[in-house]
């Protein structure tokens, strides 16, 4: 049984079909990159897997650990180990970053039948993860993402991921808006999380992030379906030649 099994998925937004029969299998331990031109449905895929409202699953199946993911609310998915690193992390004035981290961690622990983490152990854990992400601990006492720079927001996403240790990581354009130093830090954070029990699905327009986080599989998403799949060398060809040849070849 695959960790994530998407079969012939059709999704529409306000009546407009976006995903038109997408199929994809992701097994534990694997890192997949989904690449594609703007408007191909990459972010829709990430959002629909995370359970964002506003996406209509018209047909097809999405199974996560053998369960129908589409039947689960966003928070149920999160507690079951699905994590979405947002392309545009939301600023939430008045909600403390550390508070959210702890509430999120405890929600997942409670779901697994574990005790809530105590304050001392939590601070120790978060300090470690902050160091990993080269983040000043002062970030913890600020409001979630409020006034963060683009790079800080992305680092904060990966920090949350590192603390929550999800089973399926969805990374939505995590490289966008990052300078080269921030990209390296974020990529290091992601790499640290690679493990045989965990899978990652990275949605990206550019190949840049893949220089730092090497995928096991690369898929090209265009016009709502996976047009082509291959190894990391596929990403290099896309970088060199663009997306048009994929469409031509898959049409042929």
């Amino acid at each position: 049984m695959s960790l994530l099994n998407i079969e012939d998925l059709h999704v529409s937004v306000n009546g407009t079909p976006i995903l038109k029969g997408l199929s994809l299998r992701v097994d534990a331990g694997e890192v997949h990159a989904v690449m594609g031109p703007n408007g191909s449905g990459k972010s829709t895929l990430a959002h629909v897997l995370a359970g964002k409202p506003g996406y209509e699953v018209d047909s097809g199946r999405v199974e996560y650990r053998g369960e129908d993911l589409t039947e689960m609310a966003a928070d149920e998915r999160a507690r079951a180990g699905v994590f979405l690193a947002f392309q545009y992390p939301v600023e939430i004035p008045g909600v403390n970053n550390a508070y959210l981290l702890r509430a999120a961690l405890n929600a997942a622990r409670t779901e697994r039948g574990e005790d809530e983490i105590d304050a001392v152990a939590f601070m120790k854990l978060v300090r470690e993860k902050c160091a990993l992400m080269s983040m000043d601990q002062r970030f913890l006492n600020r409001s979630v993402n409020e006034g963060f720079s683009g790079g800080e927001k992305k680092r904060n996403e990966v920090l949350q991921m590192a603390v929550l240790e999800p089973t399926l990581c969805l990374l939505d354009e995590t490289d966008s808006g990052l300078d080269i130093d921030a990209l390296r830090v974020v990529a290091d954070g992601i790499n640290t999380l690679r493990s045989p029990e965990r899978a990652m699905l990275m949605v990206t327009h550019y190949q840049r992030l893949l220089d730092y986080v090497e995928p096991d599989f690369v898929h090209v998403l265009a016009d709502g379906v996976i047009q082509m799949s291959g190894g990391k060398e596929l990403a290099l060809r896309l970088e060199a030649d663009g997306y048009d040849w994929v469409r031509r070849e898959s049409a042929a």
Partner: peptide, 26 residues
């Protein structure tokens, strides 16, 4: 804010907890 609600839910907080947190913050 629906986006803030989804963000908090996507971190594992129930919809009620997410709403409560946003209301308290307000």
């Amino acid at each position: 804010d629906d986006n803030a609600l989804f963000y908090l839910q996507s971190r594992g907080l129930s919809r009620d907890d997410a709403r409560r947190l946003l209301i308290e913050a307000f």
